[in-house]
């Protein structure tokens, strides 16, 4: 066996060098072929040295709740447009979620496709937030059940939504803490990160964040922005209602560049 191992190791070394040489010359075609061979050899090597077959370290637990449902749970809690990274964090902290940000990238497109093939066939859709041009805002997810005023994004909305999310998370953390013996570490860390960025939300970095204090601080800042943001959003929502059809209202009006991209696909 050790002979075979030696051979494999030599082969792997050769292939690695060849791939790196090809990459340095920007010869991507050759590199791809060599890489495939390399992976093959590496798998063979793994099989020889490892008692347990190599692969992802732990097999994924049977998923009872779909990614879609987990995102819905988190968004429902947050009750404001949010980025995947926050959704993932909330899902993990409060629902024992298992999703990763990467799984959320194609979500919106899948939802739009499903909606187009059978409109309103599902109880809810995960959809886009709309910019002031009524196009989909980059990287923000919303729920179809929300009123349009909540799903459009004015200049102040990112901040308002951040504060809204902070209040929601603080409230959830307080509730969870009341029921549990020890606060969940992920929830504490999430809340601490938010608290740091709200004036008056935290007292240095050392003490664990106080949910009530975070919520109060967020409400105080929210009061500064609320009036203008509500006005901006109402205006945008009205425009969206009058200008957009069903699909565009949920998933955003296509901009010129996105149309070009879609066609190229």
């Amino acid at each position: 066996m050790s002979d075979r191992l030696d051979d494999l190791e030599r082969r792997i070394d050769e292939l690695r060098s060849a791939v790196r040489r090809a990459m340095r010359a920007r010869d991507t075609g050759t590199a791809r072929v060599l890489r495939a061979e390399l992976r093959h050899a590496e798998r063979a090597w793994d099989a020889l040295v490892s008692t347990v077959p190599a692969g992802p370290p732990e097999p994924p637990a049977p998923r009872l709740v779909t990614v879609r449902e987990q995102v819905h749970q988190a968004l429902h809690l947050l009750s404001a447009p949010a980025q995947p990274r926050l959704i993932v964090a909330v899902s993990g902290a409060f629902f024992g979620g298992t999703i990763r940000s990467a799984q959320l990238t194609s979500l919106r497109r899948d939802e739009a496709r499903s909606f187009r093939s059978s409109p309103y066939g599902r109880p809810y859709y995960l959809c886009a937030a709309l910019t002031d041009r009524l196009s989909p805002a980059r990287g923000l997810l919303t729920l179809s059940a929300w009123p349009l005023e909540r799903r459009v994004i004015g200049p102040l909305s990112p901040r308002v939504d951040f504060l809204t999310c902070a209040i929601a998370i603080a409230t959830a953390a307080a509730t969870a803490a009341a029921g549990a013996a020890a606060p969940d570490e992920r929830a504490t860390r999430l809340l601490a990160g938010l608290a740091r960025n709200i004036p008056g939300g935290a007292d240095g970095d050392v003490a664990p964040p106080d949910p009530e204090r975070v919520a109060a601080a967020a409400r105080a800042e929210l009061a500064v922005h609320a009036e203008r943001d509500t006005r901006d959003r109402a205006e945008l929502a009205q425009r969206a209602t009058s200008q957009l059809g069903d699909v565009a209202r949920l998933f955003g009006a296509a901009t010129l560049s996105t149309i070009v991209k879609e066609e190229a696909r």
């Binding site: 910019t131 002031d132 041009r133 196009s135 805002a137 980059r138 200049p155 102040l156 990112p158 901040r159 922005h225 901009t255 010129l256 560049s257 996105t258």
Partner: peptide, 10 residues
């Protein structure tokens, strides 16, 4: 706090 993402535009 007003934020404009210019990249939202084509």
């Amino acid at each position: 706090v007003a934020y404009h993402d210019v990249e939202n535009v084509g």
